[in-house]
Design a protein around this nucleic acid. Structure first.
Lengths: 113, 113
DNA sequence: ACATGACTTGAAGAAGTCTTCAATTACGGT
DNA sequence: ACCGTAATTGAAGACTTCTTCAAGTCATGT
């Protein structure tokens, strides 16, 4: 039940998502394929840096690129990526509200002292 | 609709999951709280290394530790972590089957030539 | 008080990742 | 054939993360 190489693969997948530009790219691609030019317009990053991050996503197999004339279009390799991003948002949200609850508790107990 | 600090937070969350030992720990904690001793028995890793990885998870707010006598017990900060791990598994599965389909296609077209 | 088992911490070198720059490829228009 | 725009690549230096070691804390048994 441990399966070390599987956990290795999972870790690599998560590590691939571990960069704000790559997250943003995947989020934009959720609404359908997009040419690099458009991604570049929506993300504040240098063209060569975006290319580097796209290459990371490509190597990980999360996106697919195809040249169409002078433009390169990127597509999500699987729509399941959306689920993963959603789960991430949800965890952040629940950690945030838990911390907020704690703050409220602290404030309340402070008022009692 | 871009929200750079949010994407930064998401990226940090995913990066925290980007290590096989940390993945394994979270998976074990899905079945309930566990003392370090037990985690150590289930994961092939040095005690000090496990501690380092637990510290990363603690700092990220994904787990909570509490001392009970001479033993330290770890707990998932939120059960939502399970969803995230599941989504990860699912992506890996769908990437795997897509690649398998591709292989089958290649094999078939090879037979036709 | 001391020893022991259960963990954590700090530090150091190796390994990996990030950003940026300059060079390069690929296509379309003239 | 040449230029401009679109995108990728390779390489270098800064920065971060990983593993391991030795040393440290903390509670319990003797």
């Amino acid at each position: 039940m441990s399966n070390v190489p599987l956990n290795q693969a999972k870790a690599e997948l998560f590590r691939t998502l571990g960069h704000p530009v790559r997250i943003r790219v995947l989020e934009l691609l959720q609404d359908g394929p997009r040419p690099v030019r458009e991604l570049l317009a929506d993300i504040e990053v240098e063209s060569s840096n975006l290319s580097q991050q796209l290459a990371v996503l490509r190597r990980a197999g999360l996106v697919i690129s195809s040249r169409e004339g002078s433009v390169v279009r990127y597509t999500l390799a699987t729509p399941d990526v959306a689920q993963l991003l959603l789960s991430g948002r949800r965890i952040l949200a629940s950690m945030w509200t838990e911390r907020e609850d704690l703050l409220a508790e602290l404030r309340d107990s402070g008022e009692q002292v």
